[in-house]
Design a binder for these strands. Structure first.
Length: 266
DNA sequence: ATGGTAGGACGCCTA
C-alpha cells in the first residue's frame, strides 16, 4: 500500500496556486492537506486542482483568515468539520479514504498562533490557543483492525529543543513556551499518537518547517521553527518509509513562510 | 533592544 501524504500551510491558496501546482507535479502526493487557505468555499480554486488530477476536494474555509482543505487523487469523503472553543473559525477538517483495503482517517488542523504575549490572563489569543489544545485532547486516533489515523497540520508549536533555532532564546516566545510544548507532547503521547517526523529524523537534529518573513535572509540566519507536524496511530508507524521537509520551497518565488512536509508509507 | 514582512481587504487585523 504505497501512500504519500503532505501538509502545507499555504498562506492564501489562491495567491499561491502556481506553487501548489509545482509541488503537486514534482512530488505527486496522494493527499495534500492545506492550512491558511484564506478562501471562502465558493472561491476555492477547485478546477485547478482537478486539472492536476486531484479530483477529490474537501474544504472548510472562510473569508480572510484561517481555512483548511484536503485534496486527493483517490476518493476522499468528509467525516467532520469540527469547530473548537465555541468559535466558528475554520481550523479542522477530518476526511477518510481507503488505502490497501483499509480505512484511513485524516485530521487536518490549523491550531491558533496565539499572539505575541505568552500570558493567558492578559492575551485572549494565547488563552484561545491553550483552550484549543485542551479540546484537541478529545481527538484520539481511531485504530482498529480495519482503520488507521493520521493527524497533520500547522500546530503552531515547536515541541522539542531541536525544533527551534535557539531553545534558550525562545523559551518565553509563543510557540515554544513550556505550557505549549509540554501541553502538545502530553496530548500526543496520552492520545497514543506517533510523531512521524521525529521517528524518521533523529530528535538530536535541528528540524524546521517555518521561517519568518521578517528575516533579512531567512536561509542564512536560519532562525526556523518546526510548527508543522505529521502524526499517526501506532499501527501505521511501522509502515513509514520516508519523511521529507521541503526546505527549498521557502526559496521559491513569493513563498509561503511554511514549507511542505511529506510522509510516505509502504 | 527593537523592528523587521506578508496577506486579505481597504483601515487594520492576523500571522
Amino acid at each position: 500500500m504505497p501512500f504519500k501524504i503532505a501538509t502545507w500551510n499555504i498562506n492564501s491558496v489562491r495567491l499561491r496556486m502556481p506553487l501548489v501546482q509545482r509541488f503537486l507535479e514534482e512530488y505527486q502526493p496522494d493527499v495534500l492537506c492545506l492550512q491558511e487557505t484564506k478562501c471562502p468555499d465558493d472561491q476555492f480554486p477547485s478546477a485547478a486542482f482537478r486539472k492536476l488530477g486531484y479530483n477529490y476536494i474537501q474544504i472548510h474555509g472562510q473569508k480572510g483568515y484561517h481555512g483548511v482543505a484536503t485534496v486527493s487523487r483517490r476518493p476522499l469523503s468528509v467525516v467532520e468539520k469540527r469547530t473548537f472553543c465555541g468559535i466558528g473559525d475554520c481550523r479542522h477538517l477530518s476526511t477518510e479514504m481507503e488505502v490497501g483495503g483499509r480505512r484511513v482517517l485524516i485530521h487536518n488542523f490549523y491550531v491558533p498562533a496565539g499572539g505575541d504575549e505568552p500570558d493567558p490572563e492578559i492575551n485572549p489569543k494565547f488563552r484561545h490557543k491553550l483552550d484549543f489544545l485542551k479540546e484537541m485532547r478529545g481527538i484520539r486516533p481511531d485504530q482498529t483492525a480495519d482503520t488507521a489515523t493520521v493527524l497533520v497540520g500547522d500546530l503552531n508549536i515547536a515541541p522539542l529543543e531541536t525544533d527551534v533555532w535557539s531553545h534558550r532564546q525562545l523559551l518565553n516566545v509563543v510557540s515554544h513556551t513550556p505550557v505549549e510544548t509540554e501541553g502538545l507532547e502530553n496530548l500526543r503521547s496520552n492520545g497514543g499518537w506517533i510523531d512521524l517526523m521525529r521517528r524518521y529524523i533523529p530528535p538530536e537534529e535541528k528540524l524546521f518547517t517555518w521561517w519568518s518573513y521578517r528575516a533579512r535572509d531567512w536561509s542564512l540566519s536560519d532562525r526556523g521553527r518546526r510548527l508543522d507536524h505529521i502524526w499517526s496511530s501506532a499501527d501505521l508507524a511501522p509502515f513509514l518509509t520516508r519523511v521529507e521537509v521541503l526546505r527549498a520551497a521557502r526559496g521559491w518565488e513569493r513563498p509561503s513562510d511554511h514549507v511542505p512536509v511529506i510522509a510516505e508509507f509502504g
